[in-house]
Design a protein around this nucleic acid. Structure first.
Length: 585
DNA sequence: GCCGTTTTCGGCCCGACTGTTTTCAGTCG
C-alpha cells in the first residue's frame, strides 16, 4: 500500500508545482515518478534495499531520497511545504476539461476560487467572465465540462468502450467516406478501463478530411461537439446514460503508421520514441519519422506503417499491449521482447458454470459450445455447497455431476470434458468439500466469494492455506475485484505468489471484463515469481465463453508468453503438471 | 528532476484546436 500512497504524493507535488508555474520538465519528472511508483512490482522499501529502485529509468537520486524520507518519517518535507502554498482542493479543478494550471492559478489569485462548486458559482454570477482569458465561450465550455463531470461515471470497462467504438466505426464505414478505419488509444492497448475512445481513419480518394469530420460531428449519436477542425474532431456520445468522449482523427495513408503509433500511445511510450528519434538526429511526429541532421529541412524517412517507424528507430516493433513504458522500449532496443500469448494458443477453458449452479446453459450445451470454439478440453466448475445464492452443489450432487460428465465423454470423442469445481475458500482457508471428494475431480479452482473485506493478513492467510491443498490447481479471480463496483481484496500479493511457486499452484486470469483478475501488473509479478497462469472465462452462458480474449490480452499486457500459461498445453501435459503438485504432498 | 556514443550543463515530444491576447497562450492528447 505504501507504493500507492507515495505515488499519490508525487502526483500531488506535480500538480501543485504546475499550478505554481514551476519548470514543466520538473513537473513531468514528478509525474513520471508517480506513475512508476504505482506500477512497481514490489513494495518500494524492498526494491530500495535491493538497490533496484535507483536503477529504474526515470527514478533519480532526488526521488529515491524522498522515498527514503517517507519510509523513515511517514512524510516528505517538500510535499508538506507545497501543501502550505495552495489549498489542496484546488487540484480538483484540474479535472475540469478546459481548466489547466494557468487557469486554476488565475481563478484562485483573482477570485479565490478553490473548488469545483466555487468555480460553478463564479461562472453563474459572471465573476469568472471578468478575468482575462475567460470569455463567454470559455465559461460556457467550463459549465458544460462541470456538468459532464457530475454525470460521467468515470472510466468505462473495455467491453463497454468497444461497444461505443463499434457503433461509431460502423456508422463511418456506412458513409463510404473512409478507406481504412482503426481503433487507437487505450482501447487498442487493452487498458482495463477506458477514459475516451480514439479512432483513426484515412479518407477515400477524392474525399476531403473535413467532410469526414463534419459527418462525424453531426451524426445522430452525437450529443455534443467538443472540437471540430479540418483533420480531427471530438464529440460526446451517450452510452447507457453516461456521456463518452470519442475522438476521430483523419490522416493520409502515407502517414497512417506514424499516426497510429502516436494516437495509440501510451503518451509515455511515445515520448520515449521521440526521445530516441532526437538522439539519432531525427524527429518523430504523427506524420512520420524525419531526418533532421545535415539538412535545413526535415527529410521524410517513413510513416506508412508502425513497423517501419520502430525499425527506423532501431527498435523491434512493440505490441500495442506492451506500450506502457514499463521496460518495453529497452527490450525492443535489445531485441528481447517476449512473444506474447495469443488467443490461438489457448487449448481449453477450465472455468465455467452450468444450470447445476448459477449458469444459464445445460451441461451438454456447454460441451457443444466448447467444440464449436475448437477447444481440446473444457472443465465444468460449478459452485460448491457454501455458495447458497449461486445454488452451489452439495457433495452428493457433485458426485452425481462427476458421474454424468464421465458418461457424457463417451459421446464426444472430439473434446475432453473435465469434471471440476469452483470450490469456495471458507473464512478460515479450509475448502468447501472433503479432501477425498476434491481428489476425485480432474481440476479444482479455489475462489473467495465471502469475507472480501478481510484484513490484509487474514485474507492473505486464507489464500495461502487454500494453496496447501494438493487438489487445488488454481486460485480463481484472486483479488475478487469488480471494476467500478468492488475494490480488490487487500492482499500481500508477494507472499501469495511466493507460496504459489512453492506449492505449485497456478493463478487464474479471469477474463470477465468486469474482473480481469489477476490484472496485468499482477500477471507480470506472477511470471517473475515463476508462477504459471491459467486464462479462464468463468462463463455462465454462451456469450461468456467469447470473453477469453480479454483475459488473453490481460496476461499479454503482463508480458505472458505461451509458456507462462498452462491452458496452452494439451490436456495430457496439463495433467502431468497437476500431478507434480499432488505427488509432492 | 532526469540524463549523457557530441554533454556532469543544458537540454528536455510535438502538433491540433480554441478563444480572443490583433499574433499567440492555454489546453489537450
Amino acid at each position: 500500500m505504501t507504493n500507492a500512497t507515495v505515488s499519490k504524493i508525487f502526483g500531488q507535488m506535480a500538480d501543485i508545482l504546475e499550478i505554481l508555474g514551476e519548470d514543466r520538465f520538473r513537473v513531468n519528472s514528478y509525474r513520471r515518478s508517480a506513475r512508476i511508483l504505482a506500477e512497481l512490482p514490489s513494495e518500494a522499501d524492498q526494491l530500495l534495499r535491493a538497490g533496484t529502485l535507483s536503477k529504474t529509468p526515470g527514478v533519480g537520486k532526488a526521488t529515491v531520497k524522498k522515498i527514503e524520507e517517507y519510509l523513515e518519517k511517514g512524510r516528505i518535507e517538500a510535499h508538506q511545504e507545497l501543501l502550505g502554498k495552495i489549498p489542496v482542493s484546488l487540484l480538483d479543478l484540474l479535472s475540469v476539461q478546459g481548466m489547466g494550471p494557468k487557469g486554476v492559478k488565475n481563478a484562485y489569485d483573482q477570485l479565490q476560487v478553490t473548488s469545483i462548486p466555487e468555480l460553478k458559482a463564479a461562472i453563474e454570477d459572471g465573476s469568472l467572465a471578468t478575468l482575462s482569458g475567460f470569455g463567454p465561450k470559455k465559461c460556457d465550455g467550463l459549465r458544460k465540462a462541470i456538468l459532464f463531470l457530475e454525470k460521467a461515471s468515470g472510466r468505462m470497462r473495455l467491453d463497454q468502450a468497444r461497444g461505443v467504438a463499434d457503433q461509431v466505426m460502423t456508422f463511418l464505414k456506412e458513409q463510404a467516406l473512409v478507406q481504412r478505419i482503426e481503433i487507437a488509444g487505450s482501447l487498442r492497448r487493452w487498458v482495463e478501463t477506458i477514459g475516451d475512445v480514439d479512432i483513426l481513419a484515412t479518407p477515400q480518394d477524392d474525399v476531403a478530411p473535413q467532410a469526414i469530420i463534419d459527418t462525424f460531428t453531426r451524426a445522430d449519436f452525437v450529443v455534443d461537439c467538443l472540437a471540430a477542425g479540418p483533420t480531427q474532431g471530438s464529440v460526446l456520445v451517450h452510452h447507457s446514460g453516461t456521456p463518452i468522449q470519442v475522438d476521430l482523427r483523419i490522416v493520409e495513408a502515407s502517414s497512417f503508421g506514424a499516426a497510429w503509433q502516436y494516437f495509440t500511445g501510451s503518451k509515455d511510450h511515445t515520448m520515449r520514441l521521440r526521445d530516441i528519434a532526437l538522439s539519432k538526429g531525427m524527429r518523430l511526429n504523427e506524420y512520420g519519422l524525419y531526418r533532421t541532421a545535415d539538412a535545413s529541412e526535415p527529410v521524410f524517412v517513413t510513416g506508412q506503417t508502425e513497423e517501419a517507424i520502430y525499425q527506423g528507430l532501431g527498435l523491434d516493433p512493440v505490441d500495442p499491449k506492451l506500450r506502457q513504458d514499463r521496460g518495453e522500449v529497452e527490450a525492443a532496443q535489445a531485441h528481447t521482447l517476449p512473444r506474447l500469448v495469443t488467443l490461438e494458443d489457448i487449448r481449453g477453458d477450465l472455468h465455467m458454470h452450468t444450470t447445476a449452479s448459477d449458469g444459464r446453459c445445460e451441461l451438454e450445451e456447454m460441451v457443444t459450445f466448447g467444440i464449436e470454439r475448437g477447444y481440446e478440453y473444457i472443465c465444468i466448475t460449478d459452485h460448491s455447497a457454501s455458495s447458497i445464492i449461486a445454488n452451489g452443489l452439495s457433495g452428493e450432487r457433485l458426485i452425481q455431476q462427476i458421474k454424468a460428465i464421465r458418461r457424457l465423454n463417451e459421446g464426444y470423442p472430439e473434446i475432453s470434458v473435465l469434471a471440476g469445481s469452483e470450490v469456495d475458500i471458507l473464512s478460515d482457508g479450509r475448502l468447501d468439500y472433503e479432501d477425498g471428494l476434491l481428489a476425485e475431480l480432474d481440476f479444482v479452482v479455489a475462489s473467495v466469494h465471502s469475507g472480501m473485506n478481510n484484513a490484509r493478513d487474514r485474507g492473505t492467510a486464507r489464500l495461502l492455506k487454500a494453496m496447501d491443498n494438493p487438489s487445488v490447481t488454481c486460485i480463481g479471480h484472486p483479488t475478487t475485484r469488480m471494476l467500478g463496483r468492488r475494490e480488490a481484496m487487500d492482499l500481500d500479493m508477494i507472499a501469495i505468489l511466493r507460496h504459489a511457486a512453492e506449492t505449485h499452484t497456478a493463478m487464474e486470469v479471469n477474463s470477465n471484463p468486469m474482473r480481469l483478475d489477476l490484472n496485468d501488473l499482477h500477471c507480470r509479478m506472477a511470471i517473475d515469481h515463476g508462477v504459471k497462469l491459467i486464462i479462464n472465462t468463468d462463463a455462465h452462458n454462451e456469450g461468456g465463453l467469447d470473453r477469453l480474449e480479454y483475459g488473453v490480452a490481460t496476461a499479454a499486457k503482463g508480458w505472458a508468453t505461451k509458456e507462462d500459461v498452462l491452458n496452452t498445453l494439451p490436456w495430457e501435459k496439463l495433467k502431468e503438471w497437476m500431478q507434480m503438485k499432488q505427488s509432492r504432498s
